[in-house]
């Protein structure tokens, strides 16, 4: 069973890899205090989800999963743009990009 799961790859392998990437990104969001690294970890989490979508598309032999990935990429780019604009706003006020300054953002 173990030898087979090393010499053959399938849906489960990609899902586990996607899970590992996702929890790495989640640890980054929780543990880092730098907003830039937090945003990068969010991108990592979105990528992990994309990987599992594409693996399912391959497994079920349907293209709809790939289209969802296309949309997720668009959302991720938009999210990065807005997040970095917020980071620039925070940096202008406090001369530092630490997550604790986000509590001062009002209106």
């Amino acid at each position: 069973m173990l030898a087979e799961s090393i010499s053959e790859i399938g849906l489960g392998h990609f899902l586990v890899l996607s899970m590992i990437l996702f929890i790495t990104g989640m640890l980054g969001v929780l543990l880092r205090k730098n907003i830039l690294t937090v945003l990068m970890s969010i991108e990592l989490m979105l990528n992990a989800i994309n990987l599992s979508f594409v693996a399912y598309a391959r497994s079920l032999n349907q293209l709809d999963g790939q289209i969802i990935v296309f949309f997720i990429m668009t959302i991720a780019a938009a999210e990065a743009g807005v997040g970095l604009a917020l980071v620039v706003a925070v940096f202008k006020r406090f001369k530092e990009v630490n997550i604790r300054f986000f509590e001062h953002l009002k209106g």
Partner: peptide
């Protein structure tokens, strides 16, 4: 997540 993967890929063959 790991247990969910284990359960849902139960009947699926290892290979694509």
């Amino acid at each position: 997540i790991l247990s969910a993967i284990m359960v849902t890929t139960q009947g699926v063959a290892i290979k694509f």
